[in-house]
């Protein structure tokens, strides 16, 4: 997937000026950079949630899994309903993605009864269940402790090995550990 000549402005502030990005299929790309530089904006543009830009996106799939910066769960749906609501045609079962994210016991719980880390894992399980061709994740692991990360991430990345995975993160160590490519957009105008 390639983004060409991307220009994005918020009022008078230029976020991207004729920038170009390339993401390799089947690889994990980490995007790093300081706050407010446009990392989340880039994900939103790729996901089609922000259409106010110029430039073109080539080779983008219609099926995109998006783990937002916040869990964004439906408060009236149980954990399993929050996952299954996204699609009726998943190759995985809800139980399988719940097991992968260590949440089997919370299957029937409502989000309000769970911790921040658990909610974020549900968001990850939801994205896995949806099985998008492109995986966008915005600081998905910041609410997880190291032990949980060690337990979940290898299994999740194994499931995502054929996907285009784009992860926004501040955590350089984590990026170095899991990324195939790291894009630093601290100087977006030069990308």
């Amino acid at each position: 997937m390639k983004i060409r000549n991307l220009t994005k402005k918020f009022a008078s502030k230029i976020i991207f000026d004729n920038a170009t990005f390339e993401f390799i299929d089947g690889k994990i790309t980490y995007i790093t950079g300081k706050s407010g530089i446009g990392k989340t904006t880039l994900l939103r543009i790729i996901a089609g949630l922000d259409k106010a830009y110029t430039g073109e996106i080539l080779g983008r799939s219609d099926k995109i899994s998006y783990v937002f910066q916040e869990p964004r769960l439906f408060p009236n749906l149980t954990v399993s309903e929050n996952i299954s609501v996204t699609t009726d045609n998943s190759p995985y079962t809800v139980d399988m993605v719940l097991k992968l994210t260590e949440l089997e016991k919370e299957k029937d719980a409502l989000p309000s009864s769970l911790s921040g880390g658990m909610k974020m894992r549900i968001a990850l399980a939801r994205a896995l269940y949806y099985n998008g061709d492109v995986f966008l994740m915005d600081e998905p692991f910041s609410a997880l402790d190291d032990a949980t990360k060690e337990l979940i991430l290898p299994k999740a990345f194994e499931l995502l090995k054929d996907k285009t995975v784009i992860i926004v993160s501040h955590n350089i160590e984590e990026a170095k550990k899991y990324a195939d490519t790291i894009i630093d957009i601290n100087s977006p105008l030069n990308n």
Partner: peptide, 24 residues
């Protein structure tokens, strides 16, 4: 609005949006 974006991102059908977001 955040949940509306979730619906948009995951292309959740209108019927399911009504049931899981609008009605509650």
């Amino acid at each position: 609005k955040d949940l509306l974006e979730v619906c948009q991102a995951y292309k959740i059908p209108f019927g399911k949006r009504i049931k899981s977001l609008y009605l509650p």
